[in-house]
Amino acid sequence: MAPDTLIRIQGIKRHFILGDSVVKALDGVDLDIEQGEMMCLMGPSGSGKSTLMNLLGGLDTPDEGTIVVGGRDISALDENELALYRRQMVGFVFQSFNLIPTMTALENVSFPLIFSGTAPAERKARGEELLDMVGLADRMDHKPTELSGGQQQRVAMARALANDPQILLGDEPTGNLDSKTGVEVMEMLRKLNEQGQTIVLVTHDPRVSQYTTRSIHMLDGRIIEEELAPL
């Protein structure tokens, strides 16, 4: 494994049974992801890119193959260990933000810290720091409904960073945003990446790939093409 390899995926298979038919969402995928990389998984619906991301995020486990993250095979973890893995290693950004509607921006950002047992004062400080970083220092006490889509996604990004994750996973982070706010969000992700944050995005928006260092194209559960961004 190269010294900078953060994630090594080998021989991953993930099959779903839908009625009588077996859907081969992932059918033998090998992939290394470097520390500090900003890559995107591209492909049409059903190509397996979201399934791959769920496996990376520890939300799902493969039927075959190994996923070694930071030297540890997460494909063999039980539910409790997976929860800890998600808490310590991963931050998620979703297409539909998934903010809790009754909580303020600050409460949403510090929400993950409740489960890691962080003290309330520290949670607040960390939340404020993160919201400041995403440029929402003046929106801390606003509920999600009082924020624009772009602002909501920035709150979600701040939340994803709360536990200082090794990997930031984004599932169509710009999918629900207009192109202008989409650009804002992508700029912010690029900024994070420049600070060393490893980022994996799932998208079928070709404009997203303009911001990434590497694009993986998938089809029918396999990687069909890999392209590096021009340096």
């Binding site: 995020g57 939300l59 539910e79 409790n80 929860a83 800890l84 998600r86 808490r87 310590q88 998620f92 998934n98 809790i100 929400f111 993950p112 489960f115 890691s116 939340r159 709360a162 536990n163």
Partner: peptide
């Protein structure tokens, strides 16, 4: 339901 999914995604254990 989504909130429960989110709780799990941000590292809440089944016990939580």
């Amino acid at each position: 339901t989504r909130e429960i999914g989110l709780m799990k995604a941000v590292g809440a254990t089944n016990r939580d």
